[in-house]
Nucleic acid binder design. Structure first.
Lengths: 151, 151
DNA sequence: AAGTAATCCTATCAAAATAATTGGATTTAA
DNA sequence: TTAAATCCAATTATTTTGATAGGATTACTT
């Protein structure tokens, strides 16, 4: 159930750009602060650019900045764009469903669907701005997670 | 955020054994019903045996059966035993935490922790028996997933 | 007691996904 | 004009995962 370092690195870069909105950050500076190699960042940022998350400025004093507002950058979408479906199994994916020969009567699919839904719920309700503002609420003893709404 | 086919295959085998409790199932039969190759199943079942989930009977008419009651087999534990931590990132893992150089002040870790907690919550509250009884409740429009308890 | 059918078990190989590297082309500020 | 930076395609390396091979051991059956 891993998020690859690709996703982690991309989010680190987006967070850094988010904390310096309006400024152009060079790739070297991003590398220093995220601990990701310059070349690997290059690939990542290029991809993030094609996906519409960042813009770049070429040439001397060039670099990268966020293309959208931090509130408009959905973490679930970022991870999905970079790593594929959030679902733990393709049979339970909404965005890239693939059939499975055992599917009918499968006793696992409901579980995978539930896992997909909970992961998607958590990630899709979170924006880059939420992360920047430390607006993620840790689960604590009294929290509930899954169940029927009571009111 | 994938579950590997290793975990899927292992759960398929456990489910099949669970539907025939008390009976010894040959590896060929398990292969036929789970669509996993005999040799790969051999490896998996050997591992499941070492982990205490199944027992085997050698020789002619040999095969496998569950070692524990289906209610005592926790799906979260199975996946963890076979694939490692449920956490999407090592920095948020409870069972196999690993430090990260960016950890203090990291704005991502709270998110990874939340994801870990929700995945663990869903998987650890589910037993093999729950799957066998189709006792997994799909999320529907009116369901809630994460939040503070209101009463 | 022999034969056969099955698990056991180690070792190795293959494939896929992920991460990192290389090398140059292009653009822009100074 | 030069230097600093992004752009971009291609390649290589690493890791994880999945599959295969081959023989040793066990136990049922005749």
């Amino acid at each position: 159930m891993k998020v690859s370092s690709k996703g982690e690195y991309a989010l680190r870069a987006l967070l850094l750009l988010g904390t310096h909105q309006g400024k152009v950050l060079g790739i070297q500076e991003i590398s220093d602060k995220t601990l990701v190699t310059v070349h690997y960042l290059e690939q990542l940022l290029l991809q993030l650019k094609k996906l519409g998350y960042v813009t770049s400025k070429r040439g001397a004093k060039g670099g990268y900045m966020l293309q959208r507002e931090a509130e408009e950058i959905n973490i679930g979408a970022v991870i999905r764009d970079l790593e594929g479906p959030l679902s733990p199994m393709a049979c339970a994916s909404i965005t890239q469903y693939e059939p499975c020969p055992l599917e009918e009567g499968c006793q696992l699919k409901p579980l995978w669907s539930l896992v997909r839904d909970t992961i998607a719920f958590v990630l899709e309700r979170t924006t880059l701005d939420d992360l920047l503002q430390n607006r993620i609420t840790k689960l604590e003893g009294g929290d509930f997670i899954v169940g029927k709404r009571t009111s």
